[in-house]
Design a protein around this nucleic acid. Structure first.
Lengths: 195, 195
DNA sequence: CCTACCGATCGGTAGG
DNA sequence: CCTACCGATCGGTAGG
């Protein structure tokens, strides 16, 4: 019955607009007065719905972090080859980004403005996520499906190739999310050289 | 005789420290008082060496932009196959990033805080750079050296895979810049699948 | 390069 | 959700 997210409706609206502004101007350069103006209210009124500016950033970042974990955990017990699991991972990872490109932008670019202990928790989660991706790559190596000499390096390149899609992806553009992940996957597996 | 860069020495020192702080805290969240404190001077004294905070960001961003252009123009007339030119491009591009990782971080993450008309100029330069990379890829396709169906997409992925190296690269770490570009190139050309 | 200072704006609170 | 307001801090200037 979704008790978690529709706390007041108004609060959700505030977070949505904050996401848009944090993406466009950056967290530090966005003022609560700007945010309030966009929502046609006074700055002081925001505080009956939220505790602080920091809380907004925290909420945006950890909502995304949880979405990534739900996505990767959803493909964990799919019985398939490592290559197929890699493909599934890329599908859902790109899916999370393309579903909320602005929140993804804040997640990837503004997390450093989190305060302790949030920032430590954030970095731990990221590390943990990277380990899950690494496990898939290592499985592929053990299976002799993949030809990789430095798995950690491959994980970094793989994630970088996906994590900046939000900078150019447009929901109404020509490329659908599945097409994007398919193309990246094809490129990563086969390369762009002639065979 | 380097007349361009050693304007007063002190000015150079200020920009170096600003680069470090803008990377660590972000442009908007860095105050001129913080910068002054790191340099053991008063905030007001900074203004005998610089015009404004904006000028510092502008200087950092366009110094990097120029470095990227010098790098890519330096390999333009090398007589070689497209694949070899691509390899050379990746070498020098990674070289620019690894030589000044903090400036690269500011260039890639803080450019949106530039004001007009700088931001328009910045985006034009970026577009122009991407065109140069695109030309190499298209040459490789025409030559039948590369197997690519969406060249623009490949350019984006290629640049993303290189442009975030500064987030983990350490000058005293185990991987040398040439090793990084060689590995990325190998991965992009051959892929990670078994052949 | 410093002291002294400016107007503007910040995140947030009190009290209704 | 608003009015009224707080102390803190911001980028920057005047004048030496």
């Amino acid at each position: 019955m979704s008790t978690t997210k529709n706390l007041s409706g108004r609060r959700h609206q505030i977070e949505k607009e904050a996401t848009r502004l944090f993406e466009a101007r950056g967290f530090a350069a966005t003022s609560m007065r700007e945010l309030a103006t966009e929502l046609q209210m006074e700055a002081a009124s925001l505080y009956s719905h939220i505790r602080s500016k920091d809380e907004l950033l925290r909420s945006i970042c950890f909502t995304m972090a949880n979405a990534f974990f739900e996505a990767i955990d959803g493909i964990a017990d799919v019985p398939a080859s490592a290559t197929e699991r890699l493909r599934a991972l890329m599908d859902v990872h790109v899916g999370v980004i393309t579903q909320k490109p602005s929140a993804a932008a804040v997640f990837f670019s503004e997390w450093k403005h989190l305060k302790e202990p949030d920032i430590s928790r954030f970095l731990e989660m990221r590390q943990s996520y990277e380990q899950k991706v690494l496990a898939i790559i290592k499985e592929g190596i053990a299976n002799k499906e993949l030809n990789v000499d430095d798995p950690k390096f491959v994980v970094r390149m793989l994630l970088n190739s996906m994590n900046w899609i939000h900078t150019w992806y447009r929901p109404d553009g020509p490329m659908k999310p599945e097409e994007i992940s398919r193309k990246i996957c094809e490129m990563v597996i086969n390369g762009i050289g002639m065979r």
